[in-house]
Design a protein around this nucleic acid. Structure first.
Lengths: 148, 148
DNA sequence: AGTGAAAGTGATATACG
DNA sequence: CGTATATCACTTTCACT
């Protein structure tokens, strides 16, 4: 799919505020709302747009800790883990990566006790490394057009 | 701020699809749209809701590579880096973490050459470790109410 | 692929339980 | 804190370009 300047402007608006109305987007990019609506639908169909979500503050809803947990899976335990990880409510993001370690997870936790209990659940799958997140320096920065 | 069952249901809807109309949310949670509207406004004011965004596929828009880059900052270089990192278009997320390493960044890159150029920009700030992301196993899973 | 207009639906402000 | 109503805005469809 080709993404022209209009589509990039629409994507910029939607990344900044997914709840912006098509009419408002139209005003900003210089188009009518039916035109915006159709372009968004095509971007969705082409899976350029993969969804719309809301950031909620983990702290405000009762999660005092955020952490990155790296897993080096034991022989034969990676595949079962890849299924299991989907069921953990604590895991907000999970990446499979190259290198000695196989998995990095971003997790939200109520407190240290919760962290301990969560890590205990992982020991059968592999060795873990925990890095507590102190601050979120850059938060879901918008994806911009790559320079050619 | 207290988050009752209604608010959790609203947050669930908004996390699953930030562009869902207030009327549709109202149907799902059993409320009229003005009531939903007012609750959302209060959640925004209390910064429980921190924003609404759109996921776009880095691959579809021209970024072939995603990576996690870990930085162990040189003496006195952490603070300047925390300012600099905000200016990198490649950095989608950046966390400050506990431990020997100070920073983990999630980056999008056009290709290997781009990765090389990007890492070169970091060498004055500290030692880097690069882990290429192979797949996104759990993608921005919704935050659920913590079990009491 | 975008515009303009009509009809349907959603958002918002106000009055009222 | 919620509903009900009215007004205004937005979305969607369609004929036309």
């Amino acid at each position: 799919m080709t993404i022209d300047d209009f589509n990039w402007k629409i994507l910029k608006c939607l990344q900044q505020n997914a709840r912006m109305s098509n009419a408002e987007i139209g005003r900003r990019v210089g188009m009518t709302s039916p035109a915006v609506s159709e372009r968004i639908k095509k971007l969705e169909d082409a899976e350029v747009i993969q969804g719309y979500t809301t950031f909620i503050s983990p702290l405000e809803v009762g999660y005092q800790l955020k952490a990155l947990i790296t897993l080096r899976a034991f022989m034969g335990m990676l595949k079962p883990f890849l299924e299991k990880v989907k069921t953990y409510d604590e895991v907000v993001n999970c990446y499979r990566i190259t290198g000695n370690e196989n998995i990095v997870m971003e997790v939200v936790l109520k407190n240290q006790k919760h962290l301990e209990i969560f890590i205990d659940q992982l020991i059968s799958y592999g060795e873990t490394k925990t890095q507590i997140i102190l601050s979120h320096v850059v938060k879901y920065s918008e994806v911009k057009p790559p320079t050619k």
